[in-house]
Amino acid sequence: MTEVRLMVIGDELVAGAGDPKALGWVGRVAARTHPTDRLSVLTLAVPGETTTALGQRWEDEVARRLSPDADNRLVIGLGRADLGAGLSLARSRLNLANVLDVAEQRRIPAFVVGPPPGSTAEADRLAELSAAFGDVATRRRVPYVDTFSPLAAHEQWLGDLAMGDGVLPGQAGYGLMAWLVLHTGWHTWLGLPDDAA
C-alpha cells in the first residue's frame, strides 16, 4: 500500500492556533480525506511567518520528510504576515512563485490555500494579496483556494473572529476554511472522487 504523504507548510493558521479542538483546517480536511492508500499529514508550521521566511526554510524541512516510496505532496497555507511585515505585493508574489517553481522542479505536486480575512483595517490589502497569490498559482496550474473572498462578509466567520482575539478563527472558522478546501479541487488534486467529501 502506497503512502500519501502531505507536507503542510505555513503559519499559525496551518497549526490550528485558536481552535479549542486543536484541529484547525488541516485536521478537519485530513479527517474528511479517505485515499485508498495510507494518509500521513505532516504539519510544518511557524507562527507569524512571512512568505520570505517560508521560502527560506521550506525546501530543507520538506526534503527531510520525503519518502521515495510515498506519493509526496506539498500543501502551502498562506497567512497574513506579509502585510504586517510591509512586504510589497511583488515580493509576496515572487516568494510564492519561487516555492512553486522549486516544487515543480522536484516533482512535488503543490496545492495552495490563501489567507483568510482578518481585521477589517487590512481587508483591502489582504484582498489584493489573496488575488495576487491566486494569480501566481493559476499561472502555474496549481490549485488555489481563495478563502478571503467567500469569508470576508460571512457572518459565521466574522462572529467566530469576534469571539476570539479578532485575528485567529475558532472552531467554526476553521470548519469554514476546511469546507472551502474540500470543495475547491482537493479530492481531484489527490486523484479521489469528488463525492469523497
Rank of each mutant, 00 (worst) to 15 (best):
S67A: 10
S88P: 12
L192G: 06
G18P: 05
A153M: 01
A197S: 08
L89G: 12
R57Y: 00
A30M: 05
N98M: 09
L168R: 09
L192R: 13
V99W: 03
V136K: 03
F148H: 08
A162I: 01
E122R: 07
L182R: 09
L158G: 02
T138E: 15
G170R: 09
V26G: 05
A81P: 00
A178W: 04
A31H: 06
R125A: 15
E104F: 02
T120F: 11
G16N: 04
E122T: 15
A152K: 13
A70S: 15
W189H: 15
T188A: 13
D37L: 08
W25T: 01
T2F: 15
L100T: 11
L176Q: 05
G191I: 13
K21I: 02
A162M: 06
L190V: 12
M1K: 10
S119C: 00
L66P: 05
L176A: 03
Q156T: 04
L89Q: 15
L190S: 08
W179S: 08
P143V: 09
E155N: 09
G79P: 01
L78C: 08
G191N: 11
L39E: 08
S149M: 06
D194P: 06
E3T: 14
M7A: 15
D146F: 04
P20F: 13
H154Q: 07
I108W: 13
G166V: 07
W179G: 06
T51D: 03
V99D: 02
A63R: 13
L182F: 05
P20K: 10
L44P: 05
R28I: 01
Y144W: 12
L126Y: 02
P47W: 00
P143Y: 03
T33L: 09
D195F: 11
V4M: 11
A178P: 05
A103K: 01
G118W: 01
A196D: 15
L96P: 06
R65M: 11
V75L: 14
V41Q: 01
V29E: 02
D124A: 14
S130L: 01
P116N: 04
